[in-house]
Nucleic acid binder design. Sequence first.
DNA 1: AATGAATGAGATTTCATTCAT
DNA 2: TATGAATGAAATCTCATTCAT
Lengths: 204, 204, 204, 204
Amino acid sequence: MTRNPKQERARLTKESIVEAGFIAVAEKGVQGATMRQIADLAGVGVASLYEYFSNKEAIFSVMSERFSDEITQMIKRITPSLVRISITDAIYKLTVELANLLRTNDSRYLKCATQGLFLNKPDELQSVYKALIELFSQHTLYHPEHLQLKRMNTMAYIFINSGVFTMLRFMSNPNPAFSFEELAQGMADMVGHYVSKELETTAQ
Amino acid sequence: MTRNPKQERARLTKESIVEAGFIAVAEKGVQGATMRQIADLAGVGVASLYEYFSNKEAIFSVMSERFSDEITQMIKRITPSLVRISITDAIYKLTVELANLLRTNDSRYLKCATQGLFLNKPDELQSVYKALIELFSQHTLYHPEHLQLKRMNTMAYIFINSGVFTMLRFMSNPNPAFSFEELAQGMADMVGHYVSKELETTAQ
Amino acid sequence: MTRNPKQERARLTKESIVEAGFIAVAEKGVQGATMRQIADLAGVGVASLYEYFSNKEAIFSVMSERFSDEITQMIKRITPSLVRISITDAIYKLTVELANLLRTNDSRYLKCATQGLFLNKPDELQSVYKALIELFSQHTLYHPEHLQLKRMNTMAYIFINSGVFTMLRFMSNPNPAFSFEELAQGMADMVGHYVSKELETTAQ
Amino acid sequence: MTRNPKQERARLTKESIVEAGFIAVAEKGVQGATMRQIADLAGVGVASLYEYFSNKEAIFSVMSERFSDEITQMIKRITPSLVRISITDAIYKLTVELANLLRTNDSRYLKCATQGLFLNKPDELQSVYKALIELFSQHTLYHPEHLQLKRMNTMAYIFINSGVFTMLRFMSNPNPAFSFEELAQGMADMVGHYVSKELETTAQ
DNA sequence: AATGAATGAGATTTCATTCAT
DNA sequence: TATGAATGAAATCTCATTCAT
């Protein structure tokens, strides 16, 4: 039913709707964001929303996709700079970069994530997982001793989820008990120490 | 010393409403749970809900409190059995116990947590934090070398949030790539290895 | 989802909604009748409509049922007075009675039928068909020569549909070229002559 | 004498819109057919519809007119072949021809009629009435005894409406209880018997 | 002339909350 | 106290029609 933009003007309108979606969800939450609000923020009529998206959920899907794409690009961009450094430093840098991304555009992504926008959208985040696995593979090329690590699937799952959710929770806290710097260092050490210890244990 | 019938009956009604709230949220989500559904599930009229709770949010608050209380009690109950064992084993046992709690009553708590019911309710979860800190304090009494660990606030924050969110995410996955046993062991090792390595480093 | 009235007050409300439905459809047609109009005519809020009917179509269904029931009752009521008279006279009387029914309540049924409300609801009209068949059966008991008539199914189908639609069309015409009296006599003769001639032909 | 290209092209576009209108109404009904659907089916932009028709209703009017014209032409075409044969045979043939017309183009006309497209458009059907009257007049020339028939206006009205609506209803029924052949014969006999009987009666 | 884009107006439906008994 | 009934307010979604190029 929805039409794909054939003119530049239409492309801009569609873009402004997605933009408005981010603002609305960031401010009011997933349920609080109404089609009317999004339309008003986008500066278009409600009916125009339905020219480009078959329903509200479709807007959220595109937003999730946008988010996923940006993280994926970021990971791919910094992968070369991470592969030669220690895993502790790599995690630290990755954490800092992700935090920066979450803070862009008035913390749009952070706020939307906190509101649960990207939950229950595991499909949309596939490309992020792929990029992280590729990052780890390339990192291992430069750190072949990591090939000895056991249960890497499980541990990667734990580290990724731990990192992401802990960051989101911390960054959403208006009065944190410690600095982001400390958090990032802590998470990096968590992984780094684990790997060191595991390699020691395995070696024996 | 028994309460008079009226109060007792009222207590039961209130209880059945909270019960109904859990079932409704587990099935339909926070926004999907309507007052009418809750009333029907509780076997009372809609208007009766307002006799016991000022509004919908109040029901959710009591539910969060109930959840928090149960976890707190669980932690306090097993604290004595955890204080003398290694931190790795303690984390493992704690993880298993928490998983069991989340799975009770047809995974009511797990489903409600996944639906985001307890998000944005940091106040309700204060008692859980306190119990965990008390657990750690007592554990340290039996493992005084842990007093040397630095940044314990930060690391505790990381480990708690990592553990909770990773568990919720894992348990909500209908087709996990590995067993819960592996997850629990992995999370225990994550903390255990970290502590070991940190103590080594500090010692030098 | 919808509740059945448990109090007299509710029964009245439900009744007033059906009543309003007839008026709205009679005035504005099936598509022109909106839930708001029906609510306004019934003197209730729009939401109340959904307490008793799951959607607009459900209101129309009850209206069709009501219509069907009234015709059925009318046929049953006059059946005893028709069975002994000639088929021509019986058709005439039946036509007149049906016209009177269609004209009751400010021609509510006539107007709704003209608007197509009862089209595509063959199920709702089953009881009418049954009553007509019963009428014919009883009439035949007193006119056993009709047992010789062939293709009674087909001819009954033709006569019934012919009669009903022609009447509706005629009665909807604000400037008919002849009187209703003539129409009724014509339709009665159409059937009466057919039967006479058919019996003659069969006899030979 | 060929028209200039612009006019010819415009005629084709207008034609394709009417065509699309028939398909849309046949599939979705009068209210279900939207301007966008018609535009899509016609292969033109929505705004183009308004180049050729002032509004949606105008498209429907042209469709009704088209329908009326086709029936009229059909009647005129077969009139010569009907005037000499008996009225029973003539009605039978007319019925068969009309059924064929209704079934052309994937039963387009039948479906549109069933959807009520041609209801409340008595003006559009004037030419059909005229052709039928002309047919009857010419038939009477060859069957002068019919001049004795009384109330011909009334009876023609009854027979025409009876025939048309009964046919539409029968042909729309996916599971009829008898064949179309039987229906056509029945309707022909209904008229034929009436006329015979009436002439007998009058003669006496 | 042709049309993609845009939308005002309004439709149906939902639901937390209040009313009245 | 208990609750069936009622609803205001607002949500999502639709569509004939107009605009702008």
